[in-house]
Amino acid sequence: MDVAEREDTLLSLMRQARLTGQGGRPEDIAGHTSLSVEQVTEVLTELVRSGEVTYQNDGAYHLSPSGIRAAEAIMRRHRVLETFLQEMLGMEHELAHAQACTMEHHTTDDTINRLRGFLRGNRDCPVTCHGHVRRCSFKSLADCAHGDVVKIDAIRGCGRGGRLADLGLIPGEKVMVKQRMADTLLIRVKDCDIAISPEIARSVLVEVDQ
C-alpha cells in the first residue's frame, strides 16, 4: 500500500471527525482524495488491521487513539512544510499548500525538526549543519574577540540604528574588532575606528567570516 494513500486516508478521517464528529464512510473519503471507493475500502481494511482505524456497525470508520496521533503528526509536517514554502521561498499559498500535500508523506521527522528550527531562527542548531549557517550562527559583535573580522548580518532595534548606518555599519559590511576593553569595543569599519558600548555591540548581529 502506498504511504501517500494511507496517510491521505487518515487525514480525511481526521477532517471528517473534526467537521461532523462522526466517522467516515469510504464514499466520503473518496470524495476528499483522488482515490476510487474500492481503493479507499482496501486502504481502510489495511488500517483496521494495523489498529489505527476501527470499523463500527454504523458503516463508518473511526480513528483509534494511535490513528489520531499518526494523523496529527502528518498535519504538523504539513504545516511546517507549507510555512517554509510560503514564508521562506515566497510561494503562493495555493501552490505551497499543494506542494506540502505531496511532500508531507516523504519527509522524515528529522528533516521536519530541522526545518522547524530554521523557521524559528533558533540558536540550538547543531554546529555541524553547514546548510544554513547564515541563520544558525546568530552571534553579535559583543561575542567577538580582539582581532576578529566579521560580516554584519543585521542590526536589531531602531534606537541608534540610524547613526550606525551613517557610520557604515550596514548589513553586508565587514568589521574588524581592533580592541576590546572589558565589553566596550573599538571596531574598524570602512577604514575608520569607532568605539561602541556593549549594549550597542549586542544589537549588531554578525556572521563569522570563513
Partner: peptide
C-alpha cells in the same frame, strides 16, 4: 533606559 555610545575615534 540607557543607550550606549557610538563614537568615532579619529587618528
Amino acid at each position: 533606559t540607557q543607550l550606549g555610545m557610538v563614537l568615532e575615534v579619529p587618528p
